[in-house]
Amino acid sequence: MPIIDFANPTRFLTIANRALPWLIAVTVIVFAIGLFYVMNAPDDYQQGATVKIMFLHVPAAWLGMLGWGLMSVAALGTLVWRHPLADVAGKAAAPIGAAFTFICLVTGSLWGRPTWGTYWVWDARLTSMLVLLLLYFGVLALYWTAEEPSRGARAAAILSLVGAVNLPIIKFSVDWWNTLHQPASVFRMGGSTIDPALLTPLLIMALAFTLLFATLHLAVMRNEILRRRVRSMRLMQAQELAEAT
Protein backbone atom coordinates (compact mmCIF):
# COMPACT_ATOMS: atom_id res chain seq x y z
CA MET A 1 0.00 0.00 0.00
CA PRO A 2 1.59 3.30 -1.01
CA ILE A 3 2.06 5.80 1.77
CA ILE A 4 0.14 8.42 -0.20
CA ASP A 5 -3.08 6.55 0.58
CA PHE A 6 -2.81 7.67 4.19
CA ALA A 7 -3.07 11.24 3.02
CA ASN A 8 -6.67 10.80 2.05
CA PRO A 9 -8.83 11.20 5.17
CA THR A 10 -11.56 8.93 3.84
CA ARG A 11 -9.00 6.24 3.12
CA PHE A 12 -7.51 6.81 6.56
CA LEU A 13 -10.91 6.33 8.18
CA THR A 14 -11.34 2.97 6.47
CA ILE A 15 -7.92 1.82 7.61
CA ALA A 16 -8.49 3.11 11.14
CA ASN A 17 -11.87 1.38 11.39
CA ARG A 18 -10.30 -1.88 10.34
CA ALA A 19 -7.19 -1.58 12.51
CA LEU A 20 -8.73 -0.38 15.77
CA PRO A 21 -10.33 -3.66 16.95
CA TRP A 22 -7.04 -5.49 16.42
CA LEU A 23 -5.06 -2.82 18.18
CA ILE A 24 -7.43 -2.88 21.14
CA ALA A 25 -7.16 -6.67 21.36
CA VAL A 26 -3.36 -6.66 21.22
CA THR A 27 -3.18 -3.86 23.80
CA VAL A 28 -5.39 -5.78 26.23
CA ILE A 29 -3.34 -8.97 25.78
CA VAL A 30 0.01 -7.25 26.29
CA PHE A 31 -1.38 -5.43 29.36
CA ALA A 32 -2.53 -8.76 30.79
CA ILE A 33 0.92 -10.29 30.29
CA GLY A 34 2.60 -7.17 31.68
CA LEU A 35 0.43 -7.05 34.79
CA PHE A 36 1.05 -10.77 35.37
CA TYR A 37 4.79 -10.13 35.31
CA VAL A 38 4.35 -7.08 37.53
CA MET A 39 2.51 -9.13 40.15
CA ASN A 40 5.25 -11.69 40.23
CA ALA A 41 8.09 -9.21 40.17
CA PRO A 42 10.34 -9.28 43.22
CA ASP A 43 10.46 -6.38 45.66
CA ASP A 44 13.34 -4.01 45.50
CA TYR A 45 15.82 -4.55 48.34
CA GLN A 46 15.80 -0.83 49.10
CA GLN A 47 12.23 0.31 48.37
CA GLY A 48 10.23 -2.84 48.94
CA ALA A 49 6.94 -3.22 47.13
CA THR A 50 6.65 0.45 46.19
CA VAL A 51 8.90 -0.30 43.24
CA LYS A 52 5.71 -1.61 41.61
CA ILE A 53 4.73 2.00 41.00
CA MET A 54 7.76 2.26 38.73
CA PHE A 55 6.02 0.01 36.18
CA LEU A 56 3.46 2.78 35.69
CA HIS A 57 5.64 5.79 36.32
CA VAL A 58 8.45 5.11 33.88
CA PRO A 59 6.33 4.10 30.85
CA ALA A 60 4.06 7.11 31.45
CA ALA A 61 7.09 9.41 31.51
CA TRP A 62 8.35 7.87 28.29
CA LEU A 63 4.99 8.32 26.57
CA GLY A 64 4.63 11.86 27.83
CA MET A 65 7.84 12.68 26.01
CA LEU A 66 6.96 10.54 22.99
CA GLY A 67 3.73 12.53 22.68
CA TRP A 68 5.64 15.76 22.33
CA GLY A 69 8.01 14.13 19.84
CA LEU A 70 5.02 13.02 17.80
CA MET A 71 3.57 16.54 17.92
CA SER A 72 6.87 17.99 16.70
CA VAL A 73 7.03 15.58 13.76
CA ALA A 74 3.40 16.36 12.97
CA ALA A 75 4.22 20.06 13.26
CA LEU A 76 6.92 19.67 10.61
CA GLY A 77 4.34 17.84 8.50
CA THR A 78 1.90 20.70 8.93
CA LEU A 79 4.31 23.54 8.30
CA VAL A 80 6.72 22.07 5.76
CA TRP A 81 4.88 19.40 3.80
CA ARG A 82 1.36 20.64 4.49
CA HIS A 83 0.20 17.07 4.88
CA PRO A 84 -3.58 17.04 5.41
CA LEU A 85 -3.43 14.51 8.22
CA ALA A 86 -0.43 16.00 10.01
CA ASP A 87 -2.30 18.57 12.02
CA VAL A 88 -4.97 16.00 12.86
CA ALA A 89 -2.20 13.77 14.21
CA GLY A 90 -0.63 16.63 16.14
CA LYS A 91 -3.91 17.75 17.65
CA ALA A 92 -4.80 14.19 18.63
CA ALA A 93 -1.44 13.63 20.35
CA ALA A 94 -1.77 16.63 22.67
CA PRO A 95 -4.48 15.44 25.09
CA ILE A 96 -3.08 11.91 25.21
CA GLY A 97 0.46 13.09 25.86
CA ALA A 98 -0.84 15.43 28.55
CA ALA A 99 -2.78 12.58 30.18
CA PHE A 100 0.30 10.35 30.32
CA THR A 101 2.45 13.18 31.67
CA PHE A 102 -0.20 13.70 34.32
CA ILE A 103 -0.13 9.97 35.19
CA CYS A 104 3.65 10.20 35.45
CA LEU A 105 3.40 13.10 37.89
CA VAL A 106 0.69 11.57 40.07
CA THR A 107 2.36 8.17 40.28
CA GLY A 108 5.67 9.90 40.96
CA SER A 109 4.11 11.82 43.79
CA LEU A 110 2.50 8.67 45.22
CA TRP A 111 5.85 6.94 44.96
CA GLY A 112 7.54 9.86 46.60
CA ARG A 113 5.33 9.92 49.70
CA PRO A 114 6.67 6.60 51.14
CA THR A 115 10.17 7.30 49.84
CA TRP A 116 10.64 10.97 50.69
CA GLY A 117 7.94 11.43 53.29
CA THR A 118 6.14 14.12 51.31
CA TYR A 119 3.94 14.01 48.24
CA TRP A 120 5.99 16.44 46.24
CA VAL A 121 9.66 17.22 46.08
CA TRP A 122 11.09 19.62 43.55
CA ASP A 123 13.17 16.82 42.16
CA ALA A 124 14.81 17.53 38.81
CA ARG A 125 13.02 14.79 36.86
CA LEU A 126 9.58 15.43 38.31
CA THR A 127 9.95 19.18 37.87
CA SER A 128 10.94 18.77 34.24
CA MET A 129 7.86 16.61 33.70
CA LEU A 130 5.76 19.30 35.39
CA VAL A 131 7.08 21.91 32.98
CA LEU A 132 6.29 19.51 30.13
CA LEU A 133 2.73 19.22 31.44
CA LEU A 134 2.46 23.01 31.51
CA LEU A 135 3.64 23.13 27.89
CA TYR A 136 1.01 20.54 26.99
CA PHE A 137 -1.63 22.67 28.70
CA GLY A 138 -0.47 25.63 26.65
CA VAL A 139 -0.93 23.73 23.39
CA LEU A 140 -4.33 22.45 24.50
CA ALA A 141 -5.36 26.00 25.45
CA LEU A 142 -4.23 27.19 22.03
CA TYR A 143 -6.35 24.59 20.25
CA TRP A 144 -9.21 25.47 22.55
CA THR A 145 -8.97 29.20 21.92
CA ALA A 146 -8.60 29.14 18.15
CA GLU A 147 -12.00 29.36 16.56
CA GLU A 148 -10.77 28.44 13.10
CA PRO A 149 -9.12 24.97 13.07
CA SER A 150 -6.51 25.56 10.38
CA ARG A 151 -5.17 28.72 12.00
CA GLY A 152 -5.13 27.00 15.39
CA ALA A 153 -3.26 24.07 13.86
CA ARG A 154 -0.49 26.26 12.46
CA ALA A 155 -0.13 28.20 15.70
CA ALA A 156 0.02 24.97 17.69
CA ALA A 157 2.58 23.54 15.24
CA ILE A 158 4.86 26.51 15.79
CA LEU A 159 4.43 26.22 19.54
CA SER A 160 5.24 22.48 19.47
CA LEU A 161 8.45 23.09 17.55
CA VAL A 162 9.50 25.92 19.86
CA GLY A 163 8.73 23.60 22.77
CA ALA A 164 10.75 20.78 21.24
CA VAL A 165 13.77 23.06 20.85
CA ASN A 166 13.31 24.37 24.38
CA LEU A 167 12.75 21.09 26.20
CA PRO A 168 16.46 20.12 26.40
CA ILE A 169 17.29 23.64 27.58
CA ILE A 170 14.54 23.46 30.19
CA LYS A 171 15.76 20.04 31.28
CA PHE A 172 19.31 21.30 31.58
CA SER A 173 18.40 24.40 33.54
CA VAL A 174 16.10 22.51 35.89
CA ASP A 175 18.91 20.02 36.55
CA TRP A 176 21.30 22.86 37.24
CA TRP A 177 18.79 24.66 39.46
CA ASN A 178 18.15 21.44 41.34
CA THR A 179 21.77 20.48 42.01
CA LEU A 180 22.35 24.02 43.15
CA HIS A 181 19.84 23.59 45.94
CA GLN A 182 19.32 19.92 46.47
CA PRO A 183 21.13 18.23 49.36
CA ALA A 184 22.87 15.14 47.94
CA SER A 185 21.30 12.76 50.44
CA VAL A 186 17.93 12.80 48.74
CA PHE A 187 17.09 9.56 47.07
CA ARG A 188 16.94 9.73 43.29
CA MET A 189 14.27 7.85 41.49
CA GLY A 190 15.09 5.07 39.05
CA GLY A 191 18.70 4.41 39.89
CA SER A 192 21.25 3.66 37.22
CA THR A 193 21.20 -0.09 37.64
CA ILE A 194 18.06 -2.12 37.38
CA ASP A 195 17.68 -5.74 38.35
CA PRO A 196 16.84 -7.91 35.31
CA ALA A 197 13.94 -9.38 37.26
CA LEU A 198 12.48 -5.87 37.33
CA LEU A 199 13.56 -4.99 33.81
CA THR A 200 11.44 -7.59 32.00
CA PRO A 201 8.09 -6.47 33.43
CA LEU A 202 9.11 -2.86 32.90
CA LEU A 203 9.80 -3.44 29.23
CA ILE A 204 6.54 -5.33 28.74
CA MET A 205 4.60 -2.59 30.51
CA ALA A 206 6.35 0.01 28.36
CA LEU A 207 5.26 -1.91 25.26
CA ALA A 208 1.69 -2.17 26.61
CA PHE A 209 1.55 1.56 27.32
CA THR A 210 2.94 2.36 23.88
CA LEU A 211 0.25 0.19 22.30
CA LEU A 212 -2.35 1.96 24.44
CA PHE A 213 -1.01 5.28 23.22
CA ALA A 214 -1.22 4.14 19.59
CA THR A 215 -4.79 2.89 20.03
CA LEU A 216 -5.96 6.08 21.69
CA HIS A 217 -4.13 8.21 19.16
CA LEU A 218 -5.74 6.45 16.22
CA ALA A 219 -9.19 6.73 17.84
CA VAL A 220 -8.78 10.43 18.63
CA MET A 221 -7.55 11.07 15.10
CA ARG A 222 -10.65 9.36 13.76
CA ASN A 223 -12.85 11.55 15.96
CA GLU A 224 -11.00 14.64 14.80
CA ILE A 225 -11.51 13.78 11.12
CA LEU A 226 -15.21 13.26 11.77
CA ARG A 227 -15.34 16.56 13.65
CA ARG A 228 -13.85 18.36 10.66
CA ARG A 229 -16.30 16.64 8.38
CA VAL A 230 -19.16 17.89 10.56
CA ARG A 231 -17.69 21.38 10.39
CA SER A 232 -17.42 21.40 6.60
CA MET A 233 -20.94 20.06 6.29
CA ARG A 234 -22.24 22.80 8.56
CA LEU A 235 -20.50 25.40 6.45
CA MET A 236 -22.14 23.85 3.40
CA GLN A 237 -25.47 23.95 5.18
CA ALA A 238 -25.21 27.67 5.84
CA GLN A 239 -24.06 28.27 2.28
CA GLU A 240 -26.79 26.17 0.70
CA LEU A 241 -29.41 28.10 2.58
CA ALA A 242 -27.91 31.34 1.33
CA GLU A 243 -28.11 30.04 -2.23
CA ALA A 244 -31.68 28.85 -1.80
CA THR A 245 -33.08 32.20 -0.71
Binding site: R234, Q237, A238, Q239, L241, A242
Partner: peptide, 18 residues
Protein backbone atom coordinates in the same frame (compact mmCIF):
# COMPACT_ATOMS: atom_id res chain seq x y z
CA UNK B 1 -36.00 36.08 8.59
CA UNK B 2 -35.50 32.78 6.77
CA UNK B 3 -33.10 31.14 9.20
CA UNK B 4 -35.39 28.40 10.50
CA UNK B 5 -33.28 25.68 8.88
CA UNK B 6 -30.16 26.73 10.76
CA UNK B 7 -31.36 26.77 14.38
CA UNK B 8 -28.71 24.37 15.69
CA UNK B 9 -25.78 25.86 13.78
CA UNK B 10 -23.22 27.86 15.77
CA UNK B 11 -23.41 31.50 14.70
CA UNK B 12 -19.73 31.35 13.70
CA UNK B 13 -20.79 29.54 10.53
CA UNK B 14 -23.13 32.29 9.39
CA UNK B 15 -22.27 34.84 6.73
CA UNK B 16 -22.43 38.56 7.55
CA UNK B 17 -25.87 38.83 5.98
CA UNK B 18 -27.18 35.82 7.86
Amino acid sequence: VGLAALTDLPAAYLSAGQ
